[in-house]
């Protein structure tokens, strides 16, 4: 284990109540993620991989254990107090793209920078840069309903990256794309990871994505496979 992992999970557990039944979604998760890693969390549906991703992404709270992000113990902090952390340190990419329908590509990417209150000129510079990076400079004025699935995901990637986060979380980023487009998206993500050193954590059941990852963490029925727990970068 490196001395300064970006993400540390110790003994993390999470329960869900389904009617009167308590379901254990996660149990005893120990996980460390180093800076700059490209990690895939793999498992069948219902395995808890999305829940694990949500807890790392600070949009869900564990019922047991400890979560440390970038040196800060966020276990006890209520989720709504973690918005600044999510804004500055994290980035999200969703399976369903989740762009704001009334904003065009440029504006969707610009949105987090406005939350950060970045001055206008710098905002514009960054948005344009990331539009270039994802190859959508020509589509900057188009709204999501005028873009293809792949293009929408690119906008989402640009939005996640524009704040220069330390960690980007992607929940099945290619699940809604055809295989060609998916490949392009994966290439893009890998490139960004190498170029910027941003840590990426995916959840997926896509073998191709698992192949691109430096490390694959397997999860089944809420538990990690032993090798993942002991993994060190």
């Amino acid at each position: 284990m490196t001395s300064n992992p970006l993400v540390t999970l110790e003994g993390v557990g999470k329960d869900y109540r389904l009617g009167r039944v308590r379901v254990r979604a996660l149990d005893g998760i120990d996980l460390a993620i180093a800076r700059g890693e490209l990690v895939a969390i793999a498992g069948p549906s219902g395995s808890g991989k999305t829940t694990l991703l949500n807890i790392i992404g600070c949009i869900d709270k564990p019922d047991a254990g400890r979560v440390v992000i970038d040196g800060a113990d966020v276990t006890a902090t209520p989720l709504h107090r973690l918005s600044p952390l999510r804004l500055h340190t994290l980035g999200f990419i969703f399976q369903t793209f989740n762009l704001i329908p009334v904003l065009n590509a440029y504006e969707n990417i610009e949105y987090p920078l406005l939350l950060q209150k970045l001055p206008g000129r710098e905002r514009d510079a960054r948005v344009r840069r990331w539009l270039e990076e994802v190859g959508l400079a020509a589509q900057s004025k188009q709204r999501p309903d005028q873009l293809s699935g792949g293009q929408r995901q690119r906008v989402a990637i640009a939005r996640a990256m524009v704040t220069e986060p330390k960690l980007v979380l992607a929940d099945e980023p290619t699940a809604n794309l055809d295989s060609d487009t998916a490949t392009h998206i994966l290439d893009l993500l890998a490139t960004i990871n190498q170029r910027t050193g941003t840590t990426f954590v995916f959840s997926t059941h896509d073998a191709a994505l698992m192949q691109r990852a430096q490390r694959v963490v397997r999860i089944k029925d809420g538990r990690l496979d032993a090798p993942a727990a002991a993994q060190a970068a």
Partner: peptide, 8 residues
């Protein structure tokens, strides 16, 4: 989504 990406 908005809350996830950092909207208070």
């Amino acid at each position: 989504t908005l809350m996830a990406i950092g909207t208070s």
